[in-house]
Design a protein around this nucleic acid. Structure first.
Length: 464
DNA sequence: GGAACTCGCCAC
DNA sequence: AAACGTGGCGAGTTCC
């Protein structure tokens, strides 16, 4: 079961990778410092307004009565004490150390207007302090030079710091706009981002060789997340033009399929899907609850299909989990058991890319490490080749960053199509030739910003 | 006054 | 049998 580690090859990959990353770091990315300063001042005002509004309430008067001059709306410790000890509210969830949680999920369930303002302030402060502040602090002559590390992660993925280029907001529209409007290409250039689609899922197939997974990867008319959405929400077929169906597919993907691949189990998945994605409560369900669906509500649909309570839904997800691993992906499931056995016997796991990981691991870790690592190494190898060619051929375009399965380039407009097709060839053709263990097709998607426009202006790029 | 910790939150 | 994988970073708090 175990692969043979190839440490010289692994070493060489890191060695070449570090040098390619160093060149991207040196290149840097342009940043609009004036914009950051202005936007920061704007956020300061917004936050100050919320802060004044909060301090002017009975809720906060009470806070100062308890804490005096030390009262601080940023202190979650104080907030937890006030809510869960003084006011005796039952916390909706606990932190890992067993105290009442004060995160977004827990606080959203408390019906006090001041709490909503605190959450709003948190969001604005996150953008201001973690991103805009860091952009201003770390820039040199209007350029950011984020570092990309290859020595910090136990799966042999990369990390990034000063600034962390790998966690700039993308899901929250407002946060995305504010932060990405600061990042620009060099004058006259444009930003191009090319990412591998579903690369971890594809690379996982190289380890477990599950035929059903293989079909999902190879057959463009198949849709794993859509199939799971139908099973979870008891639908005959998915119609992507219906908004609630689109949400259901998202819920299946992010609330079931991915968590299951990372080693989560049905209890968490059921709660996630029912409460977070559908807006349904924990107990018995009534008609007219949760998000809208089919002219009515999601609870109407689920009740009509005999799922009339959270507990019944959890049992339903349990059956789906059982079906997922023991019927649909049974070969993958057997591989997980064998892989875990192999680790327990040998004390290490190896990757196709030559790396050996040893040390104490939990089951999920030991299974996820080789997949996460070698999926990243696909990007790393491609990054190294693109860097090499860009220098050999004297491109005006350069690599400037990387986000696990995506590379970001600063491109001269005259070279856009040439660069994109070169990257396409390297990522999808050269790589599988270089590593013969890649027995699945690889695909990339690209997005490009207009000339002199910020990273917020990305539009789909179609390969010529 | 700094190190180490917890908590929360951003990304893949 | 066990129960979500990998990071960085800011603010608050605690410890020395």
């Amino acid at each position: 079961m175990q692969l043979t580690p190839n440490l010289p090859e692994a070493y060489q990959l890191l060695q070449d990778g570090i040098l390619a990353f160093a060149r991207a770091e040196q290149e840097g990315m342009r940043i609009d410092v004036d914009y950051c300063v202005k936007k920061k001042a704007h956020l300061d005002k917004k936050i100050a307004r919320l802060d004044r509004k909060l301090r002017d309430t009975k809720f906060y008067m009470h806070w100062t009565k308890v804490y005096g001059a030390k009262a601080n709306p940023d202190s979650n410790w104080q907030l937890a004490h006030l809510l869960y000890n003084v006011r005796k509210i039952t916390p909706a969830k606990l932190t890992p150390s067993g105290k009442g949680a004060t995160d977004d999920e827990a606080l959203s369930q408390i019906d006090i207007p001041e709490i909503k303002w605190i959450l709003e302030m948190r969001k604005l402060k996150k953008v201001r302090d973690t991103y805009l502040d860091a952009f201003i602090r770390e820039q040199v002559g209007g350029y950011l030079h984020p570092f990309f590390n290859l020595h910090t992660v136990k799966t042999f993925r990369s990390s990034s710091e000063r600034i962390n280029f790998q966690n700039i907001p993308k899901r929250d529209k407002e946060a995305m706009e504010i932060t990405r409007k600061a990042i620009f290409p060099k004058p006259g250039h444009q930003l191009l981002e090319i990412d591998y689609s579903g690369v971890e899922v594809r690379i996982s197939e190289c380890y477990h060789h599950d035929p059903v997974m293989r079909k999902y990867i190879e057959d463009p008319s198949s849709d794993m997340h859509g199939d799971m959405a139908c099973q979870i929400f008891v639908l005959d077929k998915l119609d992507k033009s219906i908004p609630s169906h689109k949400m259901m597919r998202q819920a299946a993907k992010n609330g079931f399929v991915f968590p299951q691949f990372y080693g989560d189990y049905y209890v968490n998945c059921a709660e996630n899907i029912a409460c977070k994605w559908c807006g349904l409560p924990k107990g018995k369900w009534k008609k007219g609850e949760g998000i809208e669906h089919d002219g009515g509500y999601i609870s109407d649909h689920l009740i009509a299909n005999k799922l009339d309570s959270f507990d019944k839904f959890t049992e339903h997800i349990k059956k789906i989990e059982d079906d997922f691993w023991n019927r649909r992906f049974k070969v993958y499931n057997r591989w997980k058991d064998k892989w875990w056995e192999g680790y327990q016997k040998n004390g290490y796991v190896s990757m196709y890319t030559g790396f050996r990981c040893s040390g104490i691991m939990r089951r999920n870790e030991c299974i996820n490490i080789p997949i996460q690592g070698s999926a990243f190494h696909c990007l790393l190898w491609s990054f190294i080749q693109v860097d090499k060619i860009s220098r050999e051929q004297n491109w005006k375009s350069r690599l400037i960053g990387q986000i696990h399965d995506a590379m970001v380039l600063d491109v001269h407009p005259d070279e856009l199509d040439m660069v994109a097709s070169t990257v396409h060839r390297i990522t999808c053709e050269d790589l599988p030739k270089h590593w013969s263990w890649i027995n699945v097709p690889l695909e990339v998607e690209a997005e490009v910003c207009p000339v002199d426009c910020s990273w917020n202006e990305k539009v789909d790029y179609h390969f010529k």
